[in-house]
Nucleic acid binder design. Sequence first.
DNA 1: TATATTATGCCAAAATATGACAAAATACGC
DNA 2: GCGTATTTTGTCATATTTTGGCATAATATA
Lengths: 145, 145
Amino acid sequence: MFRGQFLHKISKTGRISVPSKFRENLKKKHKTKNLILSTFENSIICYPYPEWIKLEAKISKLPQFKKETVEFERYLVGNAHECEIDNEGRIMIPGILRRNFKINNNAIFIGMLSRFEIWSENSWNKNLKKSFDKFQNSREVLDGI
Amino acid sequence: MFRGQFLHKISKTGRISVPSKFRENLKKKHKTKNLILSTFENSIICYPYPEWIKLEAKISKLPQFKKETVEFERYLVGNAHECEIDNEGRIMIPGILRRNFKINNNAIFIGMLSRFEIWSENSWNKNLKKSFDKFQNSREVLDGI
DNA sequence: TATATTATGCCAAAATATGACAAAATACGC
DNA sequence: GCGTATTTTGTCATATTTTGGCATAATATA
């Protein structure tokens, strides 16, 4: 499972090292070095390649011409980029994603169990306050189960 | 059960010894040396690893793309770091948590039955007064059961 | 085709985490 | 109270992870 928060730096060429804990999980649990990066809210969402494939299988079962399907596909699939983790444990975030999310120097990795997100430090901080307020609203979700 | 309050020092490298009473409980009751540290309000919350896993199992059953789920995960899972108690009974608090909670030298452990919290001495003291007021408001919770 | 831009591979420095050992502080039994 | 055992803290050496730099390769642009 992907958990936790990590602050890493992006090189001028757009490379960033994936947290070693994440790499370990990718290797042990997903047996892959490949990720699919796409967009989700204000962050880059990262799926282990095999998980993404499962997601695609689900998506292709949806009614093809339905408005919601089309919009969902455009957003999630239309922004998907495959990338491989190199020998130093780094990935290269495609320029277009970097530009869209204004990720220049510092980025924050957020573990989300089956996947993880990459945020620019700025927008993560902006979201922090909101995120806590929202947590306050949803904190009892688990007590209910 | 985790009970009581302990004041311990943090080393320059971010290590701190877990109260021996807590270690004993972890060993006897939970049969583990591993903890998950996450954030909760103004403190670091510590779950015995097996307890955390139960929590995760619940979380991963929630609808994955639903707004509330995502926000909940970002907050609770996004801050969760696994750590192991070493031979000297210490854990290392990840830098990012130390920074977020401004825990530098002294920290306070607070037992919370199934889990425990770690506070920076400063914010614990600040919360003391408030905490008593809140207790005043909630002191009858148990009487209702 | 030449040139600029972007991506990749490789090596090494810097930063951070871990393990081992010992000193200091605290708790406990008598 | 005193001596002993346990717990906590400090320090150092080593290992791992992250970052920076540079040369080369691939791709896009004029």
